[in-house]
Amino acid sequence: MKALVMQPDKCTSCLQCEMACTFEHEGVFNPARSRIKVFEFEHGALNVPYACTQCEEAWCLHACPTNAITINDATGAKVVNDDKCVGCKVCTIACPYGTINYRPETGKVAKCDLCDGNPACVEACPTGAITYQ
């Protein structure tokens, strides 16, 4: 299985990944709703992109009472099925990394789904800080 690989030393915090993510999933440029986030430290001397690690033992999936989170067999991504998600937020508590988040405007949770094997953030990154390998 391929995974998103982040290299903080290459990240300039331009947030092209966050725009690509939200355009891919929601058709808008909206970093506040991005499933991948860049964290800045020390006045921007260190910039760290961060998204769901697609844990093998996915706690979000096990915690979900409605079985709304399933595994995409092709990519291994843990995917939220909107028609089943009831917005109980248990998965957001179960996730040790804080990479599955509740969206008040939809009443459901959202997380990285690896864009069905063609991650938009990887395409958008100008420095090669995010790769899919």
Binding site: T12, S13, C14, L15, Q16, M19, G44, A45, P126, T127
Partner: peptide
């Protein structure tokens, strides 16, 4: 010079840290 830094959306990143 430690590294370079981008403004929002910038694929040049000419800023100096």
């Amino acid at each position: 010079l430690q590294t370079n830094k981008a403004c929002f959306g910038c694929t040049i990143a000419c800023g100096r840290i």
